[in-house]
Amino acid sequence: MRIICPHCGARDRREFTYQGDAVALERPAPDAGGAAWDDYLHNRENPAGVTRDLWYHEQGCGAWLVVTRNTVTHAVLTTDLAATVREGLA
């Protein structure tokens, strides 16, 4: 599995650290309530198919990436800088 870093190009999976579902970009407000926090921390869509997750290019440029990939085929579809994706959410 190779991941395409927008800065560094296609690199070995070993250079990256996996964080988990990209839900981490949408942190609820501190007072959003128990259910919202439970969803954010624990509950997952967990799709068999296309998913979006966060990877950290630890042994490369140090960027946080949102990787869209297929959990059944391991194909990496698109990669975006997490910073850019967050701006889009704001």
């Binding site: 988990g20 579902d21 969803d39 624990h42 509950n43 997952r44 967990n46 068999a48 959990t71």
Partner: peptide, 15 residues
Amino acid sequence: GQVAAMAGMRLPIES
């Protein structure tokens, strides 16, 4: 996760 989704549930599970 998929089977529970058929009952409208989201689980604290990652495969």
